[in-house]
Write a protein that binds this DNA or RNA. Structure first.
Length: 277
DNA sequence: GCCCAGGGATGCG
DNA sequence: CGCATCCATGGG
């Protein structure tokens, strides 16, 4: 995988560790659209256009540096996959999602997005997030930015209901009202156990949502978010019927260590995409 | 009509 | 602590 960086474009030749649809469709990001062999991706107030063919990916953006980090292009995924395919359970999932990369997204954007994600499905999450951007985000010439915290503080409980948040509307309102920009900045500089404690103290944020924020928004890789799919994965692999997600997360993060976040994402994508029960 | 979706809050023992 | 129950909403 050879990466060349130009002023407004990143060119990746022979991208064996990067499949754009896989990376976008694996449930870590909600602001994108795919049309044939091209896609548009948004983060904060930024936008990138991706096009791809068999042996080349091009990423065009006004902020190439941001999206270089966003798509985790500095990391050697071949090395990670080489370790994880030794795990009998994981091999099929890694082979299936071999082009997945873990996004480095904005922590605050992930916080808001994953509060919406609770007991929800990806289609509805996307719609709600898009509504909030259109309603409270800055117009950026053809698209809307993710709303800033100060902008979202103007949203009422009813506004969040109109956005389709359902019973999460009150939780979102409370958390947005309470949160400050300083909280978010502090969060980025905390050790991960304190990040977790702070996050789960917020309304609408439990262990799973906190782990997703850490994984996709704070670069913490030794967490194992357990949603309904990972719960199914665990029961299928261990021939059990537990619903104790805390136990599952503890066990699997101990098993996969610093590669937990990657392993989790391969499992999630493979089982959900194939609707394995 | 029932079940499910990247679960969390609350109350009760 | 663990456990049960409730929670909006739309698609299958």
């Amino acid at each position: 995988m050879n990466i060349e960086i130009k002023e407004n474009k990143i060119i990746i030749d022979n991208p064996q560790d990067f499949d754009v649809p896989q990376t976008l469709n694996c449930g870590q990001i909600f602001r994108y659209s795919i049309d044939g062999n091209s896609a548009v991706v948004y983060s904060k107030n930024k936008m990138a256009i991706l096009t791809w063919s068999e042996n080349r990916i091009e990423i065009s953006s006004k902020d190439v540096g941001y999206f270089y980090n966003f798509f985790d292009l500095d990391r050697d995924y071949s090395a990670i996959k080489q370790v994880l395919t030794k795990d009998k359970f994981l091999k099929k999932a890694v082979d299936y999602g071999a082009g997945i990369r873990i996004i480095n997204n904005d922590a605050y954007e992930m916080l808001v997005s994953f509060i919406i994600s609770a007991n929800n499905n990806i289609g509805r999450i996307k719609k709600s997030v898009e509504y909030l951007c259109a309603r409270f985000g800055e117009e950026c010439g053809g698209y809307f930015a993710f709303p800033t915290l100060s902008a979202l503080k103007h949203a009422s409980v009813q506004d969040f209901r109109t956005a389709g948040l359902g019973y999460r509307a009150e939780q979102m309102f409370e958390t947005i009202q309470q949160l400050t920009d300083e909280d978010i900045e502090n969060l980025k500089n905390m050790p991960s156990d304190e990040q977790f404690k702070f996050l789960v103290s917020l309304k609408g944020v439990g262990e799973k949502v906190a782990n997703c924020i850490m994984l996709f928004g704070l670069g913490v890789k030794n967490v194992f978010p357990v949603d309904t799919w990972i719960n199914k994965v665990y029961n299928a692999l261990t021939n059990t019927t537990t619903t104790d997600r805390k136990k599952i997360s503890k066990e699997l993060s101990a098993r996969y260590g610093e590669l937990s976040g990657f392993a989790q994402q391969y499992y999630f994508y493979y089982f959900r995409d194939n609707k394995i029960k």
